[in-house]
């Protein structure tokens, strides 16, 4: 059966890349003694997939991973078992059974993700010295029918419109953070950092050093107007 695990990745773990996190979990699952499903062949390893890679430098309170198990205990027990043996920064939050099959795989169903971007002190100073009101700047940015950015990848070099990929953007209470809901997943995806760079440009600010810290708040599946968190698609066992 397929289990979806929700976990955090905070603190110094933000320096650990996506593939290394996979390796970390493979070892954790082996240590836990859980009855996990292995891949076939000469070097069998636990069958796991992570919903949406998290860039180095980004933290998260909602990471998701699907793992195949042959049998397991109750969700609460399994959460306790996995957290007993954890490095600082990783906490398992939920452990739920989801439907089997490739099409329900966490990687396949991701459609959006929510982030919080918090400005660094120097950015905050820059913003206030220019007397910018973040919420206003955000709203007039989003009011545009298109937001064109220069896209430079290894393969192509051209313009792209990111406006359709921005579902929500608003400043949050402290005025030093922006909350974003962006398209994510294999079909259409917008990196929060890309959005933030476009926003800085819109404000006429050239970002220096590490201008903001990005924290992932949730990952969703479903259509744009009916988004559901990935773990709501499962049941506790």
């Amino acid at each position: 059966m397929k289990i979806r695990i929700k976990y955090t990745k905070t603190g110094v773990l933000k320096y650990i890349g996506h593939l290394d996190m996979m390796r970390y979990f493979q070892k954790l699952l082996r240590r836990s003694g859980m009855d996990i499903g292995f891949t076939q062949g000469y070097s069998p390893h636990p069958e796991i997939s992570i919903a949406l890679p998290l860039g180095i430098g980004v933290t998260s309170e909602a990471e998701y991973m699907d793992v195949t198990v042959n049998s397991c205990g109750h969700s609460a027990e399994m959460i306790e078992l996995l957290n007993k043996d954890q490095v600082e920064g990783v906490r398992v939050l939920s452990f739920r059974q989801v439907p089997d099959g490739r099409r329900s795989n966490c990687m396949a169903i991701v459609s959006a993700a929510r982030y919080q971007a918090t400005f660094s002190d120097s950015m905050k100073a820059e913003i206030s010295s220019r007397k910018l009101v973040i919420e206003e700047r955000l709203q007039d940015m989003l009011a545009q029918s298109s937001i064109i950015i220069r896209k430079k990848t290894k393969r192509s070099d051209g313009d792209a419109d990111i406006r359709p990929l921005v579902y929500e953007a608003q400043s949050v209470a402290s005025l030093s953070s922006i909350e974003l809901l962006l398209a994510a997943g294999s079909a259409n995806s917008l990196n929060p950092d890309t959005f933030m760079r476009a926003f800085a440009e819109h404000c006429g600010i050239e970002p220096q050093g590490i201008p903001w810290h990005i924290h992932r708040l949730e990952i969703y599946a479903g259509e744009k107007d009916a988004l559901v968190p990935l773990d709501s698609l499962g049941e506790d066992v």
Binding site: Y15, G57, V87, I210
Partner: peptide, 19 residues
């Protein structure tokens, strides 16, 4: 500091905290 760690190749070499 974070800006140093994020500017070097493989910051995991320098943070410790391994299992």
């Amino acid at each position: 500091p974070e800006e140093v760690l994020l500017s070097v190749e493989k910051p995991a070499r320098y943070i410790g905290a391994e299992y």
